[in-house]
Design a protein around this nucleic acid. Sequence first.
DNA 1: GGCAGGTATCTACCCGGAGTAACTTTTGCC
DNA 2: GGCAAAAGTTACTCCGGGTAGATACCTGCC
Lengths: 190, 190
Amino acid sequence: MLADRDALLTAAERIIRVEGPAVTLDAIAAAAGVTKPILYRGVGDKDALVQALAERLVARMTDEVTTMVAAAKGPRDGLRRLVGGYLALAARDRSLYLYVTAGGSNGDRVQQALLLADRTAAGFAEGIAAFRTAQGADPSVALAWSYGLLGALHFVTLWWLRDGTADTDGVAEQITGLLWSGLGGERTGT
Amino acid sequence: MLADRDALLTAAERIIRVEGPAVTLDAIAAAAGVTKPILYRGVGDKDALVQALAERLVARMTDEVTTMVAAAKGPRDGLRRLVGGYLALAARDRSLYLYVTAGGSNGDRVQQALLLADRTAAGFAEGIAAFRTAQGADPSVALAWSYGLLGALHFVTLWWLRDGTADTDGVAEQITGLLWSGLGGERTGT
DNA sequence: GGCAGGTATCTACCCGGAGTAACTTTTGCC
DNA sequence: GGCAAAAGTTACTCCGGGTAGATACCTGCC
């Protein structure tokens, strides 16, 4: 039927949204109107599928969050929008987010966990380095900080998605506080 | 042979260290000198095993890190020791750490990712709440911050374990900087 | 000491999902 | 119309988690 890579990936996203992140490759193939071998020819094995979906998800999230951040007044507000945006988008694409962050076929566990982060860290690092340089601080921390930030965002997202108790804005504000001012405490206002 | 829960878990830890985190339940049972059904009777299914191992690992790490932190001069130094300790201990028990953070049998993916964090967050939150109260700040952020901190630690650990480029102390210092002072920048000295 | 009953353990299986080989259909070309 | 190549499907294998039923062992009783 429709065998091109893009259509396959789109179908995969659709069915993951519907069936949840535990969906099987057979089901994904079926959802695309083809059978497994076609899926394999089109996108590769499960790890490749997860990776491809991660790329698309990252692209979309980056896009939207970038737009949000661009409208910020000041760096702290930018961070606040980034955190809020991340939470909101992860929640919107919940199943997909989970599929991509925990879906892999257990080849390399580390790789799996860092999939999303790897595709995002470079961009983060760039922003961080620029900001640090601008304020006369050492920019060499950028990459490590990127992974730290992404880890914090990821865990908070999972926790918040699971427990569903706290409201988005509250959590976003709290995490922004942590990431902006650190445990040491605020410098000026809230 | 030796069928009590503790012996099973100890054997599991041993074989995981030797064979790496991809080890199978059959292999674990064999390592304990028993067969799978005994393993099941003793500790339950794979999720239960992972959970039990997580508990032991958390207990050990908490223990050692607590000792390290106790010797700190001042809160920032305490955080620095916590970060360094976390990295060092995760590296020492690398395979086990990976087994526990990514091992589960794909039941609930969220649960899996947060396993370690869940068993640690409460303790963290207590410390954070106390510290915040002491400095006259709002302690209600404690739980969210705990997950944020643990996420940051986890991702940085994975990244650092995988790439193995940066030296422990450098990374620990950088992450301490992020967590203590935030993106906003340092208040006083480095 | 030998035997019944119960318990502990192992063997041998099922099940489901990833991944693939080999057969079949369709399509385009002469 | 016949034939070759491409595209697709069926029907497997393989592997790991999980379990049912057979088996060996151990205990208490006569």
